[in-house]
Design a binder for these strands. Sequence first.
DNA 1: TTACATGCAAACTGTTTGCAAATAT
DNA 2: ATATTTGCAAACAGTTTGCATGTAA
Lengths: 135, 135
Amino acid sequence: MENRKQLVERLRAVGLRPTLQRIALGELLFSKGDRHLCAEDLHAEARAALVPVSLATVYNTLNQFKAAGLLREIAIEGDRSYFDTNTSNHYHFFDDEKHELMDIEIGDLTVTGLPEAPEGKVIDRIDVIVRLRDA
Amino acid sequence: MENRKQLVERLRAVGLRPTLQRIALGELLFSKGDRHLCAEDLHAEARAALVPVSLATVYNTLNQFKAAGLLREIAIEGDRSYFDTNTSNHYHFFDDEKHELMDIEIGDLTVTGLPEAPEGKVIDRIDVIVRLRDA
DNA sequence: TTACATGCAAACTGTTTGCAAATAT
DNA sequence: ATATTTGCAAACAGTTTGCATGTAA
């Protein structure tokens, strides 16, 4: 989906120095299609890939990527924060038992009958989480 | 919306002893229409109402009420957990600047084109959060 | 050579828990 | 009388931060 040179450019474009750690984390995040993961997940992947990155740097990097619009945070209640490498408009299934997130293709699902935003506000985006349980 | 006697009955019905603290918190929660609040909010209200309740008990009570179906937890990313006293099917506006939740009447908003749930799963419920920003 | 990034450990925040004292049945 | 609930303080998890060291420009 993205090679190293493109990634370096993308980092520069958002004002982040393309350091070893940011490149390595960026490759883990953006080279395997759309992903949903938390800081611990990414840290474990990095260590498995023999990339020495501290957990603090993983947190900082995720937050910087999020602020730069490279990632989106997904709101699910619970202890951990999840990030989505797909920043385009789409929705999610959430499996509460397996604690797993899956994409729903945007084409499938439509939200209609949206009320007016309150005075002085506009709608920024709409998050939809379809919660699953065992049949 | 609910007087003390009804509340006591409701607590008994879900297997919770109607203690002083649970009744007091229940009245704060269920006597003022639909509310969205976190543990600290409720604790502050209780102290303001001169009800001596510890924060730990507020947390325990919120979790017990949630497990009993008296409350619903709302997923918004961030540090605190929010609870909704309206457990019926409805959606929310979320004002990220003011960190404030508002109900959207269910009649207004419809979600269509829902894809099949994955094998072995069924849809439990659908959460919709309409995120607002300053115009 | 200057500003920014990293790693570590310590700090911090929201939440949960263990245990003795208090309360509901 | 017995089981449950409470409050406190300590434990806990995830996340952030301060500061010295290392790295990019």
